[in-house]
C-alpha cells in the first residue's frame, strides 16, 4: 500500500514537472500597415507584450507619413510649398532621420528617404495601383534627392522633398521594443513585424533561434539561418506588387529611376544586430544589384547577407558559415573578405 502511495507521489511530481516550461505570451496586432506577431518568454511576458504594443503604437504615431499629426506628416505638409522649410520635430524623430540620412549617403542613394512622391505615384500607399507616364517619372526624379534634406537640431529642413521612413520604420520599431524588453528583464523573445524578424537573446531552452527565409518563387523556404540577438530582414519583389498589361510591377523603387528596381535581385536578406540597419540595407542592397551589394559588403563587413538573384543564384557572406542551411537542391556561393591587395 505504501508503495502505491509513493508511486502516486512520483507520478504527481512527474505531471507537475511536465508543465514547468518557461511561460510565454503571444499576440498578433495590425500596425504600421502590416501584421505583427509578438512572443515574449519569462515571468514578465504579459507585461512585455503590453509594453510592446504601446511602444509600436507610439512609434507609428510619430513617424508614419500617412498619419495626420505625426512628425513626418508635418514635415511633408511643410514641403508642399516647394521652397525651403524648417519643421520642428521631436528629438527622437530628428535622431532617426539623421541616422537614416547617413545610411542614404553611405549607400550612395540606393536608399533614399525622399522616395515618398514616387511611392505615391505608383499607388503603393493607397492600393490604387497605376503605372506613371514617362514624363511623370522624369518629374518625380527631380523631386527625389535625400541630399536636399538636413536635420538641424530638432528641425528638419527640406526643399520641397517629401519623406518616407517605410524602409527603416519597422527595423527601428523592433530595436526599440527589444531594448524595452531588456529593461523589463526579458532574456528571450521573438518579434515578427511583417516579415522583419528580431530575436531577443536565445530561445528559452538556451538554443539558437532558427529563422527561415521565404522562397521568392513560392511559399516554401529558401534557407534557414540560426543565431541569437539578431535581426533578419528580407526585401523581395514578391512582397507587394501588381500586374498591368501582363507586366508585374513591385514596390521596391529605385530612387535613380523612380520605377521598380531592375537589379537582378529576387530577394535580399540582411542579418545583424540592428533591426534598423538590416531594414535599411535589405532595401538598398536590393536596389544595388548583386555586384554593387557585394562590393558594399566588402567595405562595411559589419553585417551578413543572403542574396538570391532572379537567375536562381544564391550567395551569402562568410559570417553565416555554419549557420545557414539551404533547402534541398539549392547551392550557394560564400563570399569571403578580400584582404588589401587581393
Amino acid at each position: 500500500m505504501r508503495g502505491v502511495k509513493r508511486l502516486g507521489c512520483l507520478l504527481l511530481c512527474a505531471a507537475l514537472l511536465s508543465g514547468c516550461g518557461t511561460p510565454s505570451r503571444s499576440e498578433t496586432i495590425f500596425a504600421m500597415d502590416t501584421v505583427m506577431d509578438l512572443t515574449a518568454y519569462g515571468p514578465h511576458a504579459q507585461d512585455a507584450l503590453e509594453a510592446a504594443t504601446a511602444e509600436l503604437s507610439r512609434i507609428e504615431a510619430l513617424i508614419s507619413a500617412q498619419r495626420e499629426g505625426s512628425d513626418l506628416f508635418s514635415v511633408n505638409a511643410a514641403a508642399q510649398s516647394g521652397g525651403e522649410a524648417a519643421t520642428p520635430v521631436t528629438e527622437e524623430t530628428a535622431a532617426l532621420l539623421a541616422r537614416t540620412l547617413a545610411l542614404c549617403a553611405d549607400t550612395d542613394g540606393a536608399l533614399d528617404v525622399t522616395i515618398y512622391p514616387a511611392v505615391e505615384a505608383w499607388g503603393f500607399y493607397s492600393g490604387d495601383y497605376r503605372v506613371p507616364a514617362a514624363s511623370d517619372l522624369e518629374a518625380l526624379r527631380a523631386q527625389v534627392d535625400y541630399r536636399q534634406v538636413a536635420v538641424d537640431g530638432t528641425s528638419v529642413v527640406t526643399h520641397g522633398q517629401k519623406l518616407d521612413l517605410g524602409a527603416v520604420g519597422k527595423g527601428y520599431a523592433a530595436d526599440q521594443v527589444t531594448a524595452l524588453w531588456r529593461e523589463l528583464g526579458l532574456t528571450s523573445g521573438l518579434l515578427n513585424l511583417g516579415g522583419n524578424i528580431q530575436c531577443l537573446g536565445a530561445k528559452p531552452d538556451g538554443s539558437d533561434w532558427v529563422i527561415g527565409v521565404r522562397d521568392p518563387a513560392g511559399e516554401g523556404t529558401l534557407c534557414t539561418v540560426t543565431g541569437q540577438d539578431m535581426a533578419v530582414v528580407t526585401s523581395g519583389a514578391y512582397q507587394r506588387n501588381f500586374t498591368q498589361d501582363g507586366v508585374t510591377y513591385h514596390h521596391i523603387l529605385d530612387p535613380a529611376t523612380c520605377a521598380p528596381a531592375e537589379s537582378g535581385a529576387a530577394s535580399v536578406t540582411v542579418i545583424g544586430p540592428s533591426g534598423l540597419i538590416c531594414d535599411a540595407l535589405s532595401t538598398a542592397l536590393f536596389v544595388m544589384g548583386p555586384d554593387r551589394a557585394s562590393d558594399y559588403w566588402q567595405q562595411r563587413q559589419d553585417f551578413d547577407m543572403i542574396y538570391y538573384t532572379q537567375d536562381g543564384d544564391l550567395f551569402y557572406t562568410s559570417g553565416l558559415e555554419g549557420r545557414l542551411t539551404l533547402r534541398d537542391g539549392l547551392e550557394g556561393q560564400m563570399l569571403t573578405w578580400k584582404t588589401a591587395g587581393s
Binding site: N192, G195, V210, G212, R214, T224, Q239, T269
Partner: peptide, 21 residues
C-alpha cells in the same frame, strides 16, 4: 488590406521559429 489572418495551430510544426520575408 482586409486585416485577415489564417494561422495553423496544433498541427505538425515547421522547422523554423519564424519566417523572414
Amino acid at each position: 488590406p482586409g486585416q485577415v489572418t489564417v494561422t495553423i495551430e496544433g498541427g505538425d510544426r515547421l522547422e523554423q521559429d519564424a519566417l523572414s520575408g
